[in-house]
Amino acid sequence: MNREFTADLKKRIEEITARYPSRQAALLPVLHLVQSETGFLSAEEERAVASILGLPPIKVREVVTFYTMFTRKPLGRFHLQVCSNLSCSLADGERILRHLQAKLGIGAGETTPDGKYTLTEVECLGACEQAPCMMVNFDYHGNLDPEKVDRILEELK
């Protein structure tokens, strides 16, 4: 299951690593790049990145599994990330998550069968001032309540 990256992707990886003092330092941007190309990071991509950067594969695994912005499964078209960390919990972010689960009929970490939505429970999104909050793909939505969530979902259609 050895994955070969395309020559173009390899070239772009080398461009990134050239900007860093060591190849290991380029791990995050390289993973972002690979994910943007392949959609998600499977074990094959982990292995390929480790081999290109000369790292033990475990070093890639620990980074990929640590950050929620890296995904190891294919995502739906809209990635809904709901924060469950301190500020959002105090502002009942749990309610937002429950609402979405009921509405979409999926649990956290799952994708709707039509491949449209993926729901993820995440740690702090760095937007505590607008708790409870969530991200839809790369956009922030704060001060949420179920009605506001419904409106946001309407607009996605």
């Binding site: 074990a43 594969p57 070093k59 890639v60 695994r61 620990e62 640590f66």
Partner: peptide, 20 residues
């Protein structure tokens, strides 16, 4: 040897191996 590492984060963290 760097065989083991923390995998995942927060309450989900376990000690894991490369590619599981």
């Amino acid at each position: 040897a760097s065989t083991l590492a923390f995998v995942n984060r927060g309450s989900q963290t376990v000690i894991g191996t490369a590619l599981g």
